[in-house]
Each structure stands twice: as structure tokens, then as C-alpha cells.
Design a protein around this nucleic acid. Structure first.
Lengths: 222, 222
DNA sequence: TATACTAAGTGTACAATGAACACTAACTAC
DNA sequence: GTAGTTAGTGTTCATTGTACACTTAGTATA
């Protein structure tokens, strides 16, 4: 590695986040409204500059916590975008992360629907600043891919849930219908689920057993 | 995204490459000897600072071509490493790439065994500068994983090859033995291989059909 | 209080895929 | 011409994935 530190004026380094949740049967992503140029008043993914003594992951986590108030969420590095003209004012490269948050864990998210932060359906969002459309597209692709071979979807579920809710979550992410019996067989066979003993008595129908995840990492995360 | 460009002194941005090849039945990675501090005389992955009007991928490709003289190789972004203390002198974040080159495509690689560039077996290499040990480990992990669900191994094969050579290549990468008949069935079933019509007559045994890849992209690359 | 409505919960048969396994063919060397 | 070496080829069995329909347990309401 060349260590001639003075050779080039160094680019800016930011992190940007695709923070996903699911609400009303739609996969949604957090967008914030820009308050300054460039792209004034455009929507963008939340992000920020990397601080001095901060790792990339810490920076991403900082932005995440600032915007959501939530800790202890699933997050992973997505990709680093560095096209020379991606920011019209200066050379800026951005390390993109994606994160998953259960809708239930967001603090009164409806009250956040003030003008500068909101949740948009991923397939129906406004024009985005910078190359954020591309970043979002890549994040959705990664999420959909991982949903089919890992248990990443767990990151979107509340503490306790019915199996039918879990199935619906999978269906929303992979955008396809699943067979109920096969789904249940497969999920229970993983050994990652645990009956809570409680039942969900809402609705005019047979009550459902509530499940939770056994405490462990999300598998196959890399 | 915060665009207060003047807020922080910006870190340096480099690219580093894990360039793999296979020779003498060993997976090898290119290492270069550092000619300056820090880590003077340590071995490291080849890399360099990002230039002004250059995309990250162009920078990686530039380093790759400088070091190998080879174009038209498989390369993908691996991960971005940004721990605050990874470079003892200044804040530097690095975007790591990995690349695959068939040994046959390297120009007289033996003559490169001058003191500052060589190929080391990935499981038997000297102490590396910076966090390059971690980067290399991550790259090997990614390569091994992808070998089992994609045709990424193609990137290591010469133009024409015997099926037994392809099998050996897989075995080296995944570090396990494969069944000959099942392997051939599976490979031919992909439809990605084409007989060249030529036979390899070397050796005191039945000659082998030579194959080539149909001209197309490596699939499942992301 | 009986009937309609709704989502929960359950098993089996068939197809597709993956894994194990051994002999014959075609050449060279001696 | 005999020994040595790698190329090339199918079948059986186990495992996994897929398709598919009825009964159960509650609520709502007539």
C-alpha cells in the first residue's frame, strides 16, 4: 500500500443507511428530507460524515440511533459507492449499510411523519438525492436474496409473534406466496423458534400460539 | 446526508487487493514488500490511494494492472475496513477488492520473485502490515463460500482445460475432495461448458477432451 | 344457543436433487 | 505385449422440496 499521505487531496467519507421496516404489508425504507444544498428538499437515505475516532460501523450506528432512537438492531455493511461525480460539489465516497427494525420498536413512528423524516414503500418512493436510488436498489436486492437463505427476516419481527405473521413477513420480503404447511415445517425444523406458552386471542377465530426466537445471532450473516 | 464538508478533516482513502491465483495445487495470494514506514519491510496486500477523478473500481483495477500486467480478470468489491487505528500514522479507510487470475495468464511469474513481490500460499504467509491479515482472511472466506454456489472458480482457469483440472481447482478452493462422476454430471448440466473438439494428449494415459467456458458473465456474482 | 365465519393447525404422496460407488477405454512407456 | 495411468461413464438410495385439503377453536350474530 502506498502511504504517501500528502499525495492527493483526500475525498470526504460518509456512511449512508438503508433502514428497513415493514408496516401495513409493505417493505418500507426511511427517507429524510435534505435541508441544504446540494439536492435541497430532495429525499435521501439518512447518513453523515465519518468522525475522527469513529469506526465505520460506529458511524453507521450513530446515524441509526439518532434517527430511530432504537438500539440493538440488525445492521450490516452493504457496499461502498465512490463514483467521482456522485456528489456534485466535492469528492465524497460513501460506505452504505442496511439495517432492519421491527415497526413495533419505533417510537410513535406516526408522529415522525413531520416533514423531514418518513417511511416510504421501497417500490414507490420519490426521486432521491445523489446516487441513493442505486444504493437503495442494491440494498433491497441484498435483503431479498438473504431472506431466502438466512434467517435475516428475524430482524423485522417483534418479540412475540404468530407463525402466520412470520410467514407474512417472509412473503412481503421475497414478494411471493408460500405454502402454509411447508413453511411451518421448515421454520420449526430450524430449531430457532420457541413457543412462549402464550396464545394470541385477538380475532374471531382459533387462537394462535405465540413464538419467539431463541436467543442467538442471525446465522449466515456474511 | 450531512454535507458540511468542512466539518471534519477527512481520512485517507485507499484500495487494497487480495489477488488470488492457484499454482502447484495451492491457493496463493499476491503480497508486496513495503518500501516505507509504517511497517517498513513487512509484506502487505497490494494497494494504493484513490486518485481524484477515479472511481473505486478504477483504482482497484489500476493497482491490479500495475502489479500483474493482466487485464480482463474477475474482480469484485469485498468489504470496507475503517477501524480508527488501522493505520498508525493517519486515519485511512480502505476499500478491499478481491481478484482471480489464472496462473497461466501471469507473465513469467517466476521472474517476479524479486524481493518486493511474490505469491504466498494463503495458509502459510508472513506477518502482514496493517490489518491485512484480517482482510485476507475475509477474502479467502468469501472466495471459498462463493465457490460452492457460483461459478466464480472459472476466473482461475486457463482458456482450455480438462474436466479433471476444473475439478482439482474446485477441490483446492473449497479444500475438500469431490466425487468425479457427480462433479462431471453437475458441471455439464450447467450448460456453461463447451467441448473445444481438441484433446489433451499429454501423459501416458487416455487423452482428455478439452473444454472452454461459453462466453458469458460469471453468474451469482453479487 | 345454534349457526356462520375466520384463521390455526396438521400429514402424506410424489418429484427432484444429492450422494455413494466401480469398472472399462485409450493412450504411453518399457 | 504388458503394465501403468488418467478419462470417461450409470444406477441405486437417501434426502429434500413441493403440492395439496380438512379439522379445530375461537368470535359474532341471528
Amino acid at each position: 500500500m502506498n502511504t504517501n499521505y500528502e499525495a492527493y487531496e483526500q475525498p470526504g467519507v460518509t456512511v449512508d443507511l438503508a433502514i428497513f421496516t415493514v408496516n401495513k404489508n409493505k417493505l418500507k425504507v426511511m427517507l429524510v428530507k435534505r435541508a441544504e444544498a446540494p439536492f435541497l428538499d430532495f429525499w435521501s437515505l439518512p447518513g453523515g460524515f465519518l468522525m475522527h475516532r469513529e469506526s465505520l460501523e460506529d458511524a453507521a450506528y450513530r446515524v441509526l440511533t439518532e434517527k430511530t432512537g432504537v438500539k440493538d438492531v440488525y445492521m450490516e455493511q452493504l457496499y461502498t459507492f465512490g463514483a467521482p461525480e456522485r456528489d456534485p460539489r466535492a469528492r465524497v465516497i460513501t460506505v452504505a449499510y442496511f439495517a432492519l427494525i421491527p415497526w413495533e420498536n419505533l417510537n410513535q413512528p406516526e408522529s415522525n411523519k413531520i416533514k423531514d423524516l418518513t417511511w416510504y414503500s421501497v417500490d414507490q418512493h420519490p426521486k432521491l438525492a445523489f446516487d441513493h436510488k442505486e444504493i437503495l436498489k442494491y440494498a433491497v436486492k441484498r435483503l431479498r436474496a438473504k431472506a431466502s437463505y438466512s434467517n435475516i427476516v428475524y430482524g423485522l419481527m417483534p418479540e412475540h409473534f404468530r407463525l402466520s405473521e412470520l410467514q407474512t413477513m417472509y412473503e412481503i420480503i421475497i414478494n411471493d406466496k408460500l405454502d402454509k404447511r411447508n413453511f411451518r415445517k421448515r421454520m420449526l425444523a430450524t430449531g430457532l423458534l420457541q413457543e412462549t406458552g402464550e396464545k394470541d386471542l385477538t380475532g374471531a377465530h382459533r387462537p394462535a400460539m405465540l413464538y419467539q426466537f431463541k436467543k442467538m445471532e442471525i446465522t449466515f450473516s456474511n
